[in-house]
């Protein structure tokens, strides 16, 4: 079976004035469909940079990225946006919820371009129920705890039934109870939905949920 993600020798260098930072140096990897892969490493090792390239939030300087048999390296911004919306789910450390939208509105937002509002609302309600937030559908992000906000972000990432979910340190801002709760949600998504998940974590105990662990150091897989 073809891997759902193939990364071939990608590099990324950031420049600030005369200072060059080689964030990724020839990284190659493959992820199989349904895998739960954790990416670990020290701060500055290139974890987030790698996830940004895979999540089409940034463009590598060289190398190729193939997602679901499609080479996404040279796509236009329009095509990259379309792929992000339809096939990828991204969960950020800081939740990245729209502050003026309720929980259900945040979840349904990515589906609005494709479906009727009423259908989006129904599906968003189901997803909020899956993450145990059905009673807080009308809460604004400011009225939710960190763990609850992250679960809303997870529900939003699932609304368009993505082929891959990326999560960038989703538990970093949560207490241990909320973090465990969120991790159980990820495990459930991975096992029940057979979804592929790539997650960055600093927490050693979270790696037990993963099928595979990729360690990065100085922009290279070690």
């Amino acid at each position: 079976m073809n891997p759902i993600i193939s990364v071939i020798n990608i590099s990324k260098t950031y420049r600030s004035g005369d200072i060059e930072t080689k964030a990724l140096q020839g990284v190659s990897l493959e992820v199989k469909r349904g895998e739960f892969v954790m990416i670990t490493g020290r701060n500055g090792s290139g974890k987030s940079t790698l996830l940004h390239q895979l999540g089409l939030l940034d463009i590598p300087d060289s190398g190729e990225i193939i997602i679901n048999n499609k080479n996404v390296t040279k796509l236009s911004e329009h095509e990259r946006s379309d792929l992000r919306l339809r096939y990828l789910g991204y969960i950020f450390q800081e939740y990245a919820l729209m502050s003026e939208l309720t929980a259900i509105e945040n979840v349904m937002l990515p589906a609005l371009p494709f479906k009727k509002t009423s259908i989006c609302q129904k599906r968003a309600g189901e997803l909020l129920a899956q993450v145990d937030l059905e009673s807080k559908w009308d809460h604004l992000p400011s009225q939710l705890s960190g763990g609850e906000q992250q679960k809303v972000a997870i529900a939003r990432a699932l609304i368009n039934d993505p082929v891959v979910i990326y999560a960038d340190e989703p538990t970093a801002n949560l207490d241990s109870v909320a973090a465990a709760d969120v991790m159980r949600v990820f495990k459930k998504i991975n096992e029940d939905g057979k979804r592929t998940i790539l997650m960055i974590t600093h927490e050693q105990e979270e790696t037990v949920y993963a099928n595979r662990i990729i360690r990065l150091a100085d922009g290279r897989i070690v």
Binding site: S81, R84, R86, L97, S99, P113, R156
Partner: peptide
Amino acid sequence: SIGILRAIGLQPGI
């Protein structure tokens, strides 16, 4: 907010 909308994949034009 614009960053969030772009990250989830809404088209820049919209």
